[in-house]
């Protein structure tokens, strides 16, 4: 009996089982099953690729973006990770009300578990990216690839931070969901996803790069395809924004946590 006492903090299992359940539930009804998770961003990519390669076709020759399709693909996958992750993290507590009101499990495990799903899809998408890289005979430099992985990890932290703030908050303010959906589509255009940042006026760059998501997407593309890296001050600023956001999110979460069950 005393052995059992030791093990009651089963956070890992909890997160894992919740994530697994999410995954099973989400893709159970559809014919294509798990494939659909990868297919849907891919379809978006195909459309955008067709449209914008036509637009940027001439530009590519005259110092425009190299490997535009690959740039678009990587950017889309990163942004998809962000929008998928934030949305599900935001709704995590709301959709698992029973786990909040009928029992005590650490609430952050629910939030984190909901991001696992988006991460899994993202990892599957990485395989797709690798396949496309092979198709285009493109090999990024080792350093830029490591940076990409690092950026992915930072992106995950951003998603969790966002979830920690919004998941308790959406219980109080139901319209945050709609607001976020609108903001996401604004963000989609305000982020250099299907266009290179250089095409925007010079003065706007520093403002856009203050957004960590835009920073990640921009410098992933730059480092992989143009061999261009951000300078240390930019990195420092970027990391401190992310860190500050993360700490802020924990602070908000800790403040909200005791009252979460009452919001429902």
């Amino acid at each position: 009996m005393f052995k059992e006492l030791k093990k009651h903090e089963n956070y890992k299992e909890l997160i894992w089982v919740l994530a697994k359940t999410d995954f099973k539930l989400r893709y159970q009804g559809s014919v294509l099953g798990y494939i659909w998770a990868i297919l849907s961003p891919l379809l978006l990519f195909l459309v955008l690729n067709f449209v914008f390669t036509s637009i940027f076709a001439q530009a590519a020759g005259r110092g425009g973006p190299n490997h535009y399709s690959l740039q678009l693909l990587v950017a889309l996958m990163l942004f998809g990770f962000f929008s998928e992750g934030t949305t599900s993290a935001m709704n995590s507590l709301n959709s698992k009300q029973q786990l909040v009101t009928k029992i005590y499990i650490p609430r952050w495990t629910i939030i984190v578990a909901s991001t696992i799903n988006a991460s899994m899809i993202y990892i599957a998408n990485l395989l797709v990216i690798i396949a496309f890289f092979a198709w285009y005979h493109f090999l990024p430099s080792f350093f830029s690839f490591v940076l990409f992985l690092f950026f992915s990890a930072v992106m995950y932290i951003i998603i969790v931070s966002f979830g920690l703030i919004t998941a308790p908050l959406i219980l109080r303010f139901k319209d945050i969901g709609m607001i976020w959906a609108a903001l996401l589509s604004m963000l989609f255009y305000a982020t250099p996803i299907f266009y290179p940042l250089t095409m925007l006026p010079e003065w706007s760059h520093k403002w856009i790069l203050l957004n960590p998501v835009a920073f990640i997407i921009h410098f992933t593309k730059e480092s992989m395809f143009e061999g261009h890296y951000a300078d240390p001050i930019q990195y420092a600023l970027f990391l401190s924004i992310v860190a500050a956001g993360f700490l802020f999110s924990i602070w908000v979460y800790k403040k909200a946590e005791p009252k979460i069950a009452e919001y429902l």
């Binding site: 093990k7 089963n10 299992e13 089982v17 029992i103 499990i105």
Partner: peptide
């Protein structure tokens, strides 16, 4: 699946 889900929520580890 429900057994695993419910038991985990109740605090058991996967091994248990």
């Amino acid at each position: 699946d429900n057994i695993y889900l419910n038991a985990t929520v109740l605090g058991l580890t996967e091994k248990e």
